[in-house]
Amino acid sequence: MLLSVKNLRVSYDKIRALHGFDFHVNEGEIVCIIGANGAGKSTTLRAISQLVPVEQGSTIEFMGENLFKYTADKVVSQLGISHVPEGRRIFGNLTVMENLKLATFSRKDSDGIHRDMARVFEIFPRLDERKQQKAGTMSGGEQQMLAVGRAFMSGRRIMLLDEPSMGLAPLLMQGMFDALRQINEEGTAILLVEQNARMALKFAQRGYVLETGNLVLEGKSSDLMGNPEVKKAYLGG
């Protein structure tokens, strides 16, 4: 088991966002967490990335190690957990190349960095064309490519993706998921959080359904897609 989360509880200002969420991700797997706005999906990813404090009794283990021993930057640089945040959040004042280079800040393997950089440009040729451009001047779809490319450069054991389909036209969305599939096939596990349940379940092998901070269903994507409750609530009947 790559990532194992038990009894995850997180509160913001005394309001509990997660009420003891249990889930896991196996090596090389694609797992999705679906749910409505405010269900606690993003909070789950933030807790893994050590961006929000968790409550006593929560455990997160990564490759058998207690994740809470690591600070946010070490989670990325030492454990290889990369995080593509909601809304892309690329550094608009830096060039595309600088955004990618910044993601390698703590890496020492210059050969590996070169190889990965070349791979990013293969997966997203558009980024290669825009290398010297300020990232803020790119289109939303291109910025999403950069956000994923940046994550690819920073850590590769698992990629946490927060709503990568948000604001993308259907064709671009398909291209993005194809690229993510490629990245996964090269050995990076993926934990995907999505409001677009249909897209997410088609893409992932397993899924978890969150409702206002509680786990309500889990299982194989195919089973979830066939589940009448999921159909009704998330797949539009």
Binding site: S49, Q50, L51, T71, A72, D73, K74, V76, S77, S82, H83, P85, R89, F91, G92, N93, L94, L102, A103, T104, F105, S106, R107, R150, S154, G155
Partner: peptide, 15 residues
């Protein structure tokens, strides 16, 4: 990068 978006910088593995 920090001047632009403080919160995301740790996600780049930057202390």
């Amino acid at each position: 990068a920090m001047a632009y978006d403080f919160a995301v910088v740790p996600l780049m593995g930057v202390p």
